[in-house]
Computed example of a mutant assay.
Amino acid sequence: MPDLDPVLQLGGAWARRTDRYSQLAFVAGEEALAMAGLDPAEWDAPRVGVVVGTAFGGVTTLQAQVARQLRGEKVSVLTVPMFAPNMLPGQLCVHWGARGPSFATSTACASGGTAIGMGAQLVHAGVCDIVLAGGSDAPITPIVSAAFARMDALASGTNEPAAASRPFDATRDGFVLGEGAAVLVLERTAHAAARKAPVLARLVGFGASADAHHITDPHPEGVGLRQAMVSALAQAGASADEVDHVNAHATGTPKGDLLEAGLLARLVGRRASVTASKGTLGHTMGAAGAIEAALTVRAIAEQTVPPTANVDCLDPRVEVDVVVGAPRSQRIGLVLSNSSGFGGQNAVLAFAAP
């Protein structure tokens, strides 16, 4: 997000004592509150929770402070509050005056999806009337970039940055590191109705699982992701035949995309349209699941599927209906939004039209 001006959008004091990933989340959260018509000054603070996922936390701050230490300089007194992952939801609670449950989730690239799923549990359990849930990451730093490059995970086959992220394309060769944040307002149905709130979609199911296979490679048969999808559908009280659309995790890696496509082919076949947002946005790590959830909600609200960017030649082994070229208008009643991460952690959200 090169257009983010933290001083202008957050004020100088907040900008100085927050890491970039926190700043991204602040802006996303303010936009979510405005869209939902919520005023923190008017809500029942103990009934409002904040759950935010991140894969890396304040890695920008941590790298900068390590560099200061190596130069023999004193590190900032704000180092820990700026990089510790739990500090983001804590800072948001301070900013908004939310006094309900507040915690961070960290399930690698599934972190944002996990946060939304866990936030929904707080609403369903009657603990909260409102939960602000999402994900944020700003991992474009020398150490994170070098680490992924060392693993041969990054796209390297083109000199055109905008064309480098190629989910489901036959020439895909890795992901493009991105940054961003998204926050969703999850609200108890009766509470939203009482204040005549705009409802864009219903979160009807959440599935989480572990591959229990390898620290970085997904299970070769995708048992964990399939389990999470089936669990989300079961919680939604729906069958795979009812799925109209899937926002795939699809990072643009040769192995991962093919594995997910195979699972989708067996579960929903060609009945459901499929899109992969990372072709446009890159891989925003812990924010990805939340950003893709927001795009899924928007797809339902507009009854339109956004296309997958940079698919010039669909991999012939991908036997699902990948939307390419242009947006597709269609009936969208039930949608799955998939997320997976290192450690074999999976999170799947099921959304339905309101």
Rank of each mutant, 00 (worst) to 15 (best):
A133M: 08
A125S: 15
P139W: 06
A350W: 01
A108W: 04
P46Y: 12
L336Y: 02
A299E: 11
R298S: 11
R270P: 01
R16K: 15
L334F: 08
A287Y: 10
V318M: 08
T171W: 01
V123L: 05
G90C: 05
P354Y: 12
P6C: 11
E31I: 14
E30Y: 12
V322T: 02
A353H: 07
A120M: 13
H245E: 06
A28T: 08
S329M: 07
G37Q: 05
T18V: 05
Q9V: 02
L203E: 00
R226G: 08
Q227F: 09
A326F: 00
L267R: 11
G58K: 11
V223N: 10
T189E: 15
L263T: 06
M1I: 06
N310W: 04
T158A: 04
G333D: 14
S136T: 10
Q63S: 11
V77C: 01
G126I: 06
F351C: 00
E31K: 15
V297Y: 12
P254K: 15
H245I: 00
L92T: 07
V75S: 15
P101D: 03
E31F: 01
P81L: 02
E179K: 10
R17P: 04
D241E: 15
G344M: 07
E260G: 00
V144A: 08
Q63N: 14
M87I: 10
L314N: 06
A149D: 13
S165A: 14
L186V: 03
K278P: 13
S339C: 07
T60S: 14
V27Q: 14
Q65C: 05
P354R: 09
V322E: 01
A272R: 13
P327F: 02
A192H: 13
P198I: 03
